[in-house]
Design a binder for these strands. Structure first.
Lengths: 120, 120
DNA sequence: TCCTTAAATAGACGAATGTCTAAGCAGCTG
DNA sequence: CAGCTGCTTAGACATTCGTCTATTTAAGGA
């Protein structure tokens, strides 16, 4: 599990929110992504990974940034992974995570209110 | 309660996720907004309101679009309202909701992965 | 004034979520 | 192999969340 965009992420999604009403299916699909980001720990994880030198961070780096147990961080990483926002890549002892920028970009486009939308 | 951006929304927030790590406080603040959008019904409500003619929609319009009871819709509207994403405005018998485009735009900017970021 | 309609509030209840401890698996190194 | 470290999985538990029914408030019209 390291190069596929699982589930949801591939076509997520649609024209900007404000352009036309989301369908039920689109809304469900998008809600999975927003749900994945609807937690402060996961937002910080995402941000730590995305902004980390080289575009990737190992779990050990991440765990140290929080007052939480390893399993809890692991759980949050799993949620982010299953939503398609990040992927993990084992290299020897360590596992390195990186974000899928396209997914973030899609989400950003959906929230656009101006007409500069990326509908492609 | 109709012209103020309550709570969270005013300064939400920060540089793009991928630029630098979010602080704890920023993450908590943002998580409130994402949480508000982490539900299919609320996403569709938001989209229905944002894309509605005139930029506003009355609750009666919204309720009809779902197989849910009035109180449930009302609950979701309250969540959106309290997060600062929308405001309601009573005119006679009906209450009209509209989105705060700046808040959506801020969120969109936070998710930006390129350098076209709006840090202002 | 009384009735009707639009919408919100209150409270209940099952399902989902975030955290933990304990246990397991993967890869290194003596 | 044995033992260590990095990370995930399993399972438990309290809290939060989404939905409902019943009730309440606001505004209009007879």
């Amino acid at each position: 599990m390291s190069k596929q965009l699982p589930l949801v992420a591939m076509d997520a999604c649609c024209a900007p929110l404000a352009r036309e009403p989301l369908t039920q299916d689109q809304a469900v699909e998008l809600s999975h992504l927003f749900k994945a980001m609807a937690d402060p720990v996961r937002l910080r994880l995402l941000s730590l990974i995305a902004s980390h030198a080289g575009g990737e961070a190992c779990v050990c780096d991440l765990t140290d940034a929080f007052d939480l147990t390893g399993p809890t961080i692991s759980h949050h990483l799993k949620v982010l992974r299953e939503s398609g926002l990040i992927t993990g890549d084992r290299r020897g002892t360590w596992i390195y995570y990186r974000v899928h920028p396209e997914v973030l970009a899609r989400l950003s486009a959906v929230l656009t209110t101006t007409s500069e939308a990326v509908t492609a």
